[in-house]
Amino acid sequence: MKAIEAQSLTKSFGDFVAVDRISFSVEEGEIFGFLGANGAGKTTAMRMLCGLSKPSSGFGWVAGLDIGRQSEKVKASIGYMSQKFALYDDLTVRENIRLYAGIYGLPDRLIAGKTDGLLAGLGFGEERETFVRDLPLGWKQKLAFSVAIVHEPRIVFLDEPTGGVDPATRRRFWELIYQAAERGITVFVTTHYMDEAEYCDRVSIMVDGRIAALDEPAELKRSLGAASMDEVFRLIARGAKRGGE
C-alpha cells in the first residue's frame, strides 16, 4: 500500500484553481520533498492531504484513508509540524509532551513511560521542567518534531520545518528526519532550502497548481543538465505565471 496517493486532486476557490488535478504517490518509509514557488499551491495541497480542507474534486488517500470522507481518521493517523512550532511556551517540556500524547489519544498508562523515553532520547533529562519559551530555537525544533511523532504515526507532514534556523541546527534536524524514516515513518516535507531537497528520496516541484516535475534529485539534475537542485528549481519554476496565493 502507498503511504500517500493523490488522483486528480483539485481545489478551487471560486474561479481560482489553487491545486489543479495533481496525481502522485509516496511510498512507505520514503522522504518526499514537496517543493514549489510561493503561490504554487503547496500549502493548499498539503492542507487537503492532512484532512484540513476538502478537495473540490479528485481523490486522495493517506495511510489508506480517504481524505475526503475520512478526514477525522486521517488527522489521527498523521503527525504534523509547521514552522510555527505548535508548542505551548508557558508549559514545561514534559507538560508539552504529555499534552500532545493525550491529544493524540495515547492511553494514560502509556503516556508517562512514553514521556520519559522521549525525554531521554532527546537528551532533555535536565530540561524536563524547563519552560519551552526558555529553550534555544534548535531544541524547540527538535521537541516540536518529537511531539509531532509522539503517537508513532505512519506519516509525518513537515511544513518548512527549518526556516530561519542556523545551518548546523538545520542539519541536525535532518538527521532526526532520517532516523524517523529508518523507523519506517513516511516523511512529507516542504522547504525553501534547495540543498535540503537533495536529502529527499524524491521531490516534486509544483508550478501554478500543477506538479511540473517529480523524480529523484539526481535524476532531475541529470535530465535538466543542472549542477544543483537550486538550478533545477529555477529552470522549472521560471515559467510560473501566477502571482496570487
Binding site: N38, R234, A237
Partner: peptide
C-alpha cells in the same frame, strides 16, 4: 527574502 521561494529570492 525570508519565506520567499528561490526564484523570487533571486
Amino acid at each position: 527574502t525570508t519565506g520567499v521561494d528561490p526564484v523570487s529570492r533571486k
